[in-house]
Amino acid sequence: MFAGYSMGELTAIFAMQGFAGLILFSVFVLMALGLAIIFGQMGVINMAHGEFMILGAYVTYLVSHVFADIMPALFSMYFFVAMALAFVAAGALGMFVEWAMICHLYKRPLDTLLATWGLSLILQQLYRSIFGAREVGVTIPDWMMGSLPLTDMIEVPINGIFVMVLAVGISIAIYVLMFRSGWGRQVRAINQNRVMADAVGINTAWTDRMTFGIGCGVAGVAGSAFTMIGSTGPTAGQQYIVDTFLVVVFGGAGSLLGTIASAFSISQAQSIMEFFLSGSMAKVLTLLVVVGILMLRPQGLFALKLRK
């Protein structure tokens, strides 16, 4: 397998693949964070999570056009506006969906799964009707183009670095929100004992709606970030959903750190294997290993042992 490569080349391969893996890792983290809130904290299966991401991507696409047409001078900054709008748009849609659908299904998790799948089909068709079936891409601002050479054999793309920085920033923000704020404490309290949380005066309905909205908003930001490294089509979200759920489940639902660790291990495994095997076999092997480990340890990598 390694024959025909010199030591230096191998190092460079591992470094470059490792870096490609880091970008994939950031992507996984961004995808999984929203789901970790919704599934991990609320126990809701949102199969339309990918479509919320795509919504963020389309918002970014629209904003980039608005900037290019109306205020080209500020074009280099459009991405930050787009991200904020993506968060708001996906979050608002999320809150609406929670109000109209999810809140009636909290005791029926498998039904939530089917209903949100229906939602994802509807959103896909809407995207297709509005934006067309073809994939769309955005113009990346100049400062994000190109790459940074580290050594003469290793260089890293700037947009990749940007996505990584974003992933780190959002992870920290969510950690603070969930584990260091009063609001996060309420969310966790509801997760542990809804009736009691109600009794001590937490507005559970409103907190649920906000939590779901924030989870979807983060998905929107993730989608926004994806436009920096790839194009967007109406069905792109569906391709991510299995990966995203596996990342969250593999990490142990409810553990933010677990989500990040599992995103890291899955992405690294996949991108390093991708160099030696065909892309599809690397994917198959990665998924197989993840499923295999989940069968041995269904509670995920990071889960407390609790009395049931």
Partner: peptide, 25 residues
């Protein structure tokens, strides 16, 4: 190992994904 409910659903879905990728690949 008492995997049930939504976990079972997600893992069976992953298996469907794996087999599809394998057949296509």
């Amino acid at each position: 190992r008492r995997v049930g409910g939504v976990y079972f659903a997600i893992i069976t879905q992953a298996i469907a994904a794996i087999l599809t990728i394998l057949i296509i690949g």
